[in-house]
Amino acid sequence: MKQAVREAFISKILLLTALSSIGALTLITVFIFAEGLPVIFKTGFFDFIFGMKWKPSRGIFSIFPMIAGSFAVMAGAMLVSVPFALCCSIYLAEFAGRTTRAIVKPAIELLAGIPSVVYGFIGVTVLVPFIKNNIGGNGFSVLGCSIVLGIMVLPTITSISYDALRAVPDSYREGALALGATRWQAVKMAVVPAAGSGIIAAVILGMGRAIGETMAVIMIAGNSLIIPLSPLDPVRTLTSNIALEMGYASGMHRQALFATGVILFVIIMALNILATRVIKRAVR
């Protein structure tokens, strides 16, 4: 019976460890909101989100240009990444041979492992001068961010779409092939539509990644407080706003950065929950 007591004790401990991740999530939510909400309430929710001015020295905190900036670079990143990622995942899942796949798949996953500061640095040393000299503007731009972010989220979108495509039963392929379709037609007409919601979930998660990325963006974006109207305009995102000013902010200013974090957190959680919803619907 001593053994039974010990087993029961162990299962309690394991339950506690299992609660660590949800506990962490709760802590994060509580602390970010507790620090950030006062400024949002003080400014007024509407003014905080839709106001144009961010003037820490005068205690004016509104973040619309950064929200616009975050969505602009995210949209640009998706334009770069989605077609590429789809091609990669379809190629890997449907056409690549075993050896090709064994080389290409880990290589693409390796792209996700490269530190974002390294991407940012290469962006500054290669891409920014290239844009400045060949396209226009001063190089620090939505365009530069979009390209770098597009590369950074490529592995996320590719590997989730890949899994979705692999999950499509072979009967779909065989059914189409039996009707005289080529491999490509089978993929285009039967497999990709069947994997549709998985692919959409992959894109949504990719959006979350792009909006949440900080260190690469901060180095390439230029960080001006304007609403970008052209791809060559500099931009400041929610993330880079936090990272740029956290180093020296204090008091109300620091709380305003947490308030920026609240908005960022809400956007990302909404995207994540949306993606899991889409995946769940696909499973059913």
Binding site: I22, L25, I28, G208, G212, T239, I242, M246, F258, N272
Partner: peptide
């Protein structure tokens, strides 16, 4: 537990920093 772990995986690093 799964919800917690999935959400945590999606939280951007700057939020972890804050």
């Amino acid at each position: 537990v799964r919800f917690g772990s999935d959400c945590l995986a999606g939280v951007p690093s700057i939020i972890f920093g804050l």
